[in-house]
Amino acid sequence: MRKTRAPEYDERQLQVRGRAFMITFIIFVFLTAILALIEKEFHWITFNAYQFLSIPVWLSITFLYIYCIRHDAYEGLSQDSTSGFLALVMGGAGILVLGITLYKILGRGIPLVENKEARDPLAGVVAGVCMLAIGIAYLMKKRNEKKLGDEEDDDL
């Protein structure tokens, strides 16, 4: 017999997460369309398949994370450390990815865009910045929660 698990999120968090997923999907479609326009219609830059997929995915996932973190819908009812750990790992990985990418750009002289063609470091910069933004958003939220303390009962 399956064990019944307590719901992981409360009703408000589920609403927020539902809205966040919906907007994330719209952002993903919108960004994919923008990249397609840039490449196929305006012929400004050409992207390879990896960049074409990873840039909209990273940007929309970052929106999802930050939206949930800002609206207190990232950590569930149990407030377990797994989700927090994941956000912090993302931040750390972001620093690593950005470091490697900056080394490629500055050390090896690989540009972000060359002859109207997006090069490898472009996706790295986007992924690194997005990961770092998730980590920073989580840390800022935690710091603000500490600042606010338990609650404010002064306005009664």
Partner: peptide, 16 residues
């Protein structure tokens, strides 16, 4: 009760 205690009683988060 503080917000945290009430939240635990009703099964939601303190922020809610």
């Amino acid at each position: 009760l503080n917000q945290e205690a009430l939240a635990k009683l009703v099964g939601v988060t303190r922020q809610t």
